[in-house]
Design a protein around this nucleic acid. Structure first.
Length: 537
DNA sequence: GTTAGGG
DNA sequence: CCCTAAC
């Protein structure tokens, strides 16, 4: 069978790479990829925000906003210093290396103002951002790159990981310095298993599951028996949770039929500049009130919020947070706000970086928390009494970075923006299906190149070699992707879906696949022969 | 912890 | 992507 494959794709003359591994199994079957993952049921995600603090004035009244220097509007209830607020104005579509910041420019401010046409506008731009990392791998382990006859063996492997951006926290890595076994990755999905059942239970009363695999009911003991189980996911709920906190309310969540929620925290909710106009005769209290009104106006409906996740602006409002990747697996780069004086409509909800789990902290750790107004917004968990300020305060104090934060607000219209204490994450109901993140062409290229060099049986090595920085790509993912690539390469272009993969790459896929199949077959045959010989002797 | 395959 | 038997 394997030999047949070899004949099918030919032998391209790769040099045998170091440490070739024989396949562990000869199981074969045509992969079937029939899952529908396009459930995009949307769940309203209303936010309510109110300003709880008072804002003091910006200090001058220039007509135009100074886009290079930002002034922070002080909030008496929260810290006011902002240290990493050095926003460079840039196009929100193209700027990659910045954060989203809000900047108040103009806005209509009630009658308190002296009739001028001044208004407030919050425009967005980024501050810290994405980094298209270039990973240049050195020569193969043995220092001598294998030669592939029909492909260009460029040792320089460039990965443009468009999806996986770390917030400016780069991390150097050298393949050669890595231990042979990479440390376990917390980001791997395995750690999220235990609560799959709970997840399922929590959602079982809803009929959102269209995936047949999720529909069947099954009983499962608390123990994690090798029972066929299915990860559950709620497509109509933005809920996600962190997987680290400890189960406090586990009992309730088992029976309760409420959504779990993403805990979000606005890491730097700042108003760089804020101009108001007010008569000299106005009293201080009137000034305060005016500022308050203006700010309230901003937060109560005239705010347009843009969401940036790992360098990409999330435009599809119908996607769930889960689908967009705003979950514990990712860090939301920034949150942008726009305010158009004429259009009083909330476009989206403010979402803020959700810091990562402890492990990847080095990469995901947010900017020093010494900053910004910690405006906390809290998303209300429907029917869930979970939130309580005690928890919040608790977490704000001694928890790791990831435990802080979060917030949610009931409804944008409801009005009360609370600068609230941070709340501790409740125990993560883990087990969400990961977000689907299609491989980009550059990723495919990296994969192909790595497989050409390492073969199809060393996915961990492939991962380390070409996707070490792509934390969302596990070696299993790579193996799966390769499988689909091979399949894609075999079918007609008309049958292919998704972002088209250059034919050249697909050719290389088949080529490498053919080669390595042959290689494995050969090895297997050798091994068999050897075994047989030993047996006979 | 990895691989390989089925779902 | 998930799940898991087999290593």
């Amino acid at each position: 069978m394997v030999l047949q494959k070899m004949l099918e794709y030919g032998f391209n003359g790769y040099q045998v790479p170091p440490i070739p591994r024989a396949p562990r199994s000869a199981r074969k079957r045509v992969p079937s990829w029939k899952k529908n993952e396009d459930h995009n049921k949307m769940c309203a995600f209303d936010l309510l925000a109110t300003v709880a603090g008072k804002l003091s004035e910006g200090d001058d009244s220039a007509d135009k906003i100074n886009r290079e220097e930002s002034k922070v509007v002080k909030d008496s209830m929260v810290k006011t210093e902002i240290d990493y607020l050095k926003a460079n104005v840039c196009d929100q579509e193209s700027c990659n290396k910045s954060f989203f910041v809000s900047e108040i420019i103009k806005a209509p401010v009630r009658d308190t103002f002296s009739g001028s046409a001044s208004g407030i506008t919050v425009s967005d731009f980024k501050i810290e951002g994405t980094n298209n990392k270039e990973v240049i791998n050195e020569a193969p382990e043995n220092g001598k790159p294998p030669v592939v006859n029909n492909v260009d063996c460029n040792l320089k492997l460039v990965i443009r990981d468009d999806d996986e951006k770390s917030c400016g926290h780069t991390q150097s890595h050298t393949l050669n310095n890595k231990p042979f076994r990479a440390p376990p990755r917390i980001g791997d999905r395995r750690i999220r298993r235990l609560s799959a059942y709970k997840q399922w239970r929590a959602a079982s009363n809803t009929d959102m599951y269209r995936n047949k695999n999720s529909c069947y009911k099954y009983q499962r003991s608390i123990r994690d028996y090798p029972f066929k189980k299915r990860r559950l996911y709620q497509f109509d709920s933005p809920s996600i949770s962190n997987d680290q906190s400890d189960s406090i309310e586990d009992g309730s969540s088992l029976s309760a039929v409420h959504d779990s929620h993403v805990k979000l925290k606005i890491k730097s909710f700042k108003v760089p500049e804020f101009f108001i106009e007010i008569p000299e005769t106005a009293t201080v209290s009137s000034l305060k009130r005016t500022v308050m009104e203006a700010v309230t106006a901003i937060f109560s409906g005239e705010l347009h919020v843009g969401v940036m996740l790992q360098g990409k602006r999330i435009r599809d409002d119908n996607k769930t947070l889960l689908q967009t990747g705003i979950c514990h697996d990712n860090v939301l780069d920034a949150l942008g706000f726009t305010l158009e004086s004429n259009e009083l409509q909330v476009e989206d909800l403010p979402i803020v970086p959700l810091t990562a789990r402890p492990k990847p902290l080095s990469r995901y750790s947010p900017p020093p928390p010494t900053v910004a107004n910690q405006l906390v917004i809290q998303q209300k968990a429907p029917d869930s009494p979970v939130t309580n300020s005690r928890d919040i305060m608790e977490s704000d104090h001694g928890m790791s970075v990831d435990s802080r934060a979060l917030v949610t607000v009931p409804s944008m219209n409801a009005g009360a923006l609370a600068v609230g204490p941070v709340r501790k994450f409740k125990r993560a109901e883990v087990g969400q299906r990961r977000i689907r993140r299609p491989f980009s062409v550059s990723e495919v290229e990296a994969l192909v190149e790595a497989v050409e060099r390492l073969g199809t049986g060393r996915w961990r090595d492939v991962k380390i070699r070409a996707f070490d920085d792509a934390k969302h790509r596990t070696y299993v993912d790579l193996k799966d992707k390769w499988k689909t690539l091979v399949h894609t390469a075999r079918i007609s272009p008309q049958q292919r879906r998704g972002e088209p993969v250059p034919q050249e790459l697909l050719d290389r896929v088949l080529s490498a696949h053919g080669y390595w199949s042959h290689h494995q077959a050969k090895n297997q045959f050798k091994h068999q022969l050897q075994t047989e010989t030993c047996r006979l002797l």
